[in-house]
Simulated scan of single mutants.
Amino acid sequence: MLLLPFFTKTACVLCSAYPATPVVGIAGGAYILISTVMGDPIRSLIGIGITLVDLPIYSNMIRAKKAE
């Protein structure tokens, strides 16, 4: 039902769940993040730290690509 090749009235009814879908996704991601930090704080904080260090590098790569 979600793989319709074109929009129909049925597909538009599925679109009405839009605000709830991102909220459920964010809540699920937050739950996974919090439970991981509580279960193994050292390793999870190392992983979060590596991700945060890589964000400026990624941002610079995107900026350089746009400048080309």
Score class of each variant (00 low, 15 high):
Ile50Ser: 10
Val53Phe: 15
Val24Gly: 00
Leu52Gln: 13
Phe6Ser: 12
Pro41His: 09
Lys9Gln: 08
Ile57Thr: 15
Met1Gly: 15
Cys12Pro: 00
Gly47Ile: 07
Thr21Gly: 01
Arg63Asn: 15
Ala30Val: 08
Val23Asp: 02
Gly28His: 03
Thr21Leu: 11
Val24Asn: 02
Ser44Thr: 10
Gly47Met: 05
Asp54Trp: 09
Asp54Val: 10
Leu4Phe: 11
Cys15Phe: 11
Thr21Val: 15
Ala30His: 01
Leu33Thr: 11
Tyr18Ala: 14
Thr8Gln: 06
Phe7Gln: 15
Gly29Gln: 01
Leu33Tyr: 05
Ala27Cys: 05
Thr21Tyr: 05
Ser59Val: 10
Thr8Trp: 02
Ser59Leu: 10
Ile34Gly: 01
Thr36Ile: 00
Ile26Glu: 01
Ser59Thr: 14
Ile62Phe: 10
Ala67His: 11
Asp40Ser: 15
Val53Trp: 10
Cys15Glu: 02
Phe7Ile: 12
Pro5Lys: 04
Tyr31Trp: 10
Pro56Phe: 12
Pro19Ser: 02
Tyr31Asn: 03
Tyr18Asp: 01
Leu2Ser: 11
Gly39Cys: 07
Val13Gln: 08
Tyr58Phe: 14
Val53His: 06
Thr10Ser: 05
Ser59Asp: 14
Gly49Phe: 06
Leu45His: 07
Gly25His: 05
Arg43Lys: 14
Pro22Phe: 04
Ala30Thr: 13
Gly49Thr: 11
Val24Thr: 06
Lys9Met: 05
Tyr31Thr: 06
Pro41Cys: 08
Thr36Leu: 09
Leu33Ile: 07
Cys15Thr: 09
Leu52Arg: 07
Ile32Gln: 03
Arg43Glu: 07
